[in-house]
Simulated scan of single mutants.
Amino acid sequence: MARLISRPNGLAVRTATPLSGPRAVGGGGNTSIGNFMQTLASPFGAWRWQFTFPVSKNAAFRRYRGWVTALHGGANATRFPFFDPDMMSDAEAGLIATSAQRRLGMTWSNSMPWSNGQNWALSVPKVAVAEAAAKDASRIKLQVVFWGGKLQVGDYIGFFPLHFGLYMVTQEFGEGEYRIWPPLRKAIDTTGFATLSPVLAMRLESEESATADRGVAYAEEKTVVLVEVFDYDVRDYFDE
């Protein structure tokens, strides 16, 4: 059975470029006698991303080459936490905290940190799902709390627990109801939550999708092309 591995801590992405969308996977077109091109969109595409990692050396490069090697040219998949640099601000998302709390994190209720001396890191609130939706549904409804009623076209969201998927809002209906793309990879219900920090399962597109070459002084920027592995395929074919 193929393995599902985690991306190493500290392996930062410099740029992220989406390479496919609804019209790139499963789309098509027809040309009329008058040479007019009619394109056909498909709602069933999959994410395909190109990620660029910065110049690295020492521990950072060791983590990168170990991760790329473990992916085995696409045979294994990786958990890929998706960070949106254009995400709404903490205040817009409903996170109220002082500058010190944002910088240092939060202690336990007894004012003590974890045993390693680290505090809790702050994160934006989660939002409960308001109505159940089946796998492949493209309309969802969230509770109108925190950011649940504030999403707009272009916002990224995900779901948890145990849900691999990255979804973009493509239409707003009001009262926490939205159209998303791609369709849900897994059914959701009112026991689940939406998050602004989604996690994808992805694999290398091919053997040529990543390299781990290194110069004498350091490794140049590296480009990796990853394609989405659907949630239901992860559960059928991948293990830890």
Rank of each mutant, 00 (worst) to 15 (best):
Arg3Ala: 09
Arg3Cys: 01
Ser6Asp: 12
Asn9His: 06
Leu11Pro: 03
Leu11Gln: 04
Arg14Asn: 06
Arg14Met: 07
Arg14Cys: 01
Arg14Thr: 10
Arg14Leu: 09
Thr15Asn: 08
Ala16Asp: 04
Ala16Glu: 08
Ala16Ser: 10
Thr17Ile: 13
Thr17Asp: 10
Thr17Asn: 12
Gly21Cys: 00
Gly21Arg: 03
Arg23Pro: 00
Val25Asp: 10
Gly26Ile: 02
Gly27Ser: 10
Gly28Met: 04
Gly28Thr: 03
Ser32Gln: 04
Ser32Val: 02
Ile33Pro: 06
Asn35Glu: 10
Asn35Gln: 11
Gln38Leu: 11
Thr39Gln: 10
Thr39Val: 11
Pro43Thr: 04
Pro43Gly: 06
Phe44Ser: 06
Ala46Val: 08
Ala46Glu: 09
Trp49Arg: 02
Trp49Ile: 14
Gln50Glu: 15
Thr52Trp: 01
Ser56Tyr: 02
Asn58Glu: 12
Ala59His: 09
Arg62Ala: 12
Arg62Glu: 13
Arg63His: 11
Arg63Ala: 14
Arg65Lys: 12
Trp67Lys: 01
Val68Phe: 00
Gly73Gln: 01
Gly74Lys: 05
Ala75Glu: 05
Ala75Gln: 07
Phe82Lys: 03
Phe83Leu: 12
Asp84Ser: 10
Asp86Gln: 13
Met88Val: 11
Ser89Trp: 08
Asp90Met: 09
Asp90Ala: 13
Ile96Ala: 08
Ala97Cys: 02
Arg102Val: 04
Arg102Leu: 11
Arg102Thr: 00
Leu104Lys: 09
Leu104Gly: 05
Leu104Asp: 15
Met106Arg: 14
Thr107Ser: 10
Trp108Phe: 15
Trp108Leu: 13
Asn110Asp: 15
Met112Ser: 14
Pro113Phe: 08
Trp114Ala: 14
Ser115Arg: 13
Asn116Gly: 09
Gly117Asn: 07
Gln118Asn: 15
Asn119Ala: 11
Trp120Asp: 08
Trp120His: 15
Trp120Thr: 11
Ala121Met: 14
Ala121Leu: 15
Leu122Arg: 02
Lys135Cys: 03
Asp136Arg: 10
Arg139Tyr: 09
Ile140Arg: 01
Leu142Asp: 01
Val144Leu: 04
Leu151Asn: 10
Leu151Lys: 10
Gln152Phe: 12
Gln152Ser: 15
Gly154Trp: 11
Asp155Ala: 14
Ile157Gly: 08
Gly158Gln: 06
Gly158Asp: 05
Phe159Lys: 03
Phe164Lys: 05
Phe164Met: 09
Gly165Val: 04
Leu166Gln: 00
Glu172Trp: 00
Gly176Cys: 06
Glu177Ile: 01
Tyr178Gly: 07
Arg179Pro: 02
Trp181Ile: 08
Pro182Phe: 07
Pro182Trp: 06
Leu184Asn: 04
Arg185Gln: 14
Lys186Ala: 11
Thr191Pro: 00
Gly192Tyr: 09
Phe193Ile: 00
Phe193Thr: 02
Ala194His: 00
Thr195Phe: 00
Leu196His: 04
Pro198Asn: 01
Val199Tyr: 04
Met202Asn: 01
Met202Ser: 03
Arg203Thr: 08
Leu204Met: 11
Glu208His: 12
Glu208Arg: 14
Thr211Ile: 13
Thr211Phe: 12
Ala212Glu: 11
Val216Arg: 12
Ala217Leu: 15
Ala219Tyr: 06
Ala219Val: 07
Glu221Thr: 15
Thr223Asn: 10
Glu228Ala: 05
Phe230Arg: 15
Phe230Cys: 11
Asp231Met: 08
Tyr232Lys: 15
Val234Gln: 08
Asp239Gly: 15
